[in-house]
């Protein structure tokens, strides 16, 4: 299979699984790009995630552009970016005309509750799989614990990018 086609399929899967926000795309991206296709090193993927968090736009879309560009230049960037948004656009396009019928008959919301919890399961899984690769020693673990405490103390009032930047500065000093 040509590389560009594989790229499109991978990012369509990421787009389909990106359910309810950016964090859940991290395990999907790691699975597709690092663990299963070996297109990127873990450290490279982590860098893409960091850049995606610090630049405007959804993480999945940013990661698609970055990975596509990295693997096959501008055409790759365009294809991966389109691939990541196509599944949800197609689903929305199909749902919009019949949304009124959906509301009463087929109870989407009951299915949704399970999906929400499944997404949480994936995020917890990512804490393990991503964490295992990112945290290499006690110093790393201490930085992660401190960042978690800061996030927990401020509970959403502090922008995560500030915590990421602060950890980056600490990293530049201590590593």
């Amino acid at each position: 299979m040509p590389l560009l086609l594989k790229l499109v399929i991978s990012f369509m899967l990421i787009g389909l699984g990106a359910y309810g926000g950016g964090m859940v795309t991290i395990p999907l991206i790691q699975h597709e790009l690092v663990d299963s296709r070996h297109w990127l090193e873990f450290s490279e993927m982590a860098r893409i995630l960091v850049v995606s968090q610090m630049t405007p736009g959804p993480i999945a879309v940013n990661a698609a552009t970055f990975t596509g560009f990295r693997l096959s230049g501008i055409p790759g960037a365009i294809l991966a970016t389109v691939a990541v948004i196509v599944p949800s656009i197609v689903i929305l396009a199909l749902l919009v005309p019949c949304i009124e019928r959906f509301k009463n008959k087929w109870n989407l919301r009951d299915f949704m509750q399970g999906i929400k919890i499944g997404v949480l399961g994936l995020i917890l899984f990512a804490v393990w799989s991503y964490g295992k690769a990112a945290i290499k020693g006690w110093l790393d673990l201490a930085i992660a614990a401190a960042a978690f405490l800061v996030l927990a103390v401020f509970e959403g009032k502090l922008h995560p990018v500030i915590v990421i930047l602060a950890c980056g500065v600490i990293g530049a000093i201590v590593f």
């Binding site: 982590a46 995020i123 990112a134 945290i135 790393d140 960042a147 990421i164 950890c167 990293g171």
Partner: peptide, 12 residues
């Protein structure tokens, strides 16, 4: 970037 990547674990 290594420091930043660690912060993403905390964010997750």
């Amino acid at each position: 970037f290594r420091g930043c990547a660690i912060a993403i674990v905390s964010q997750l």
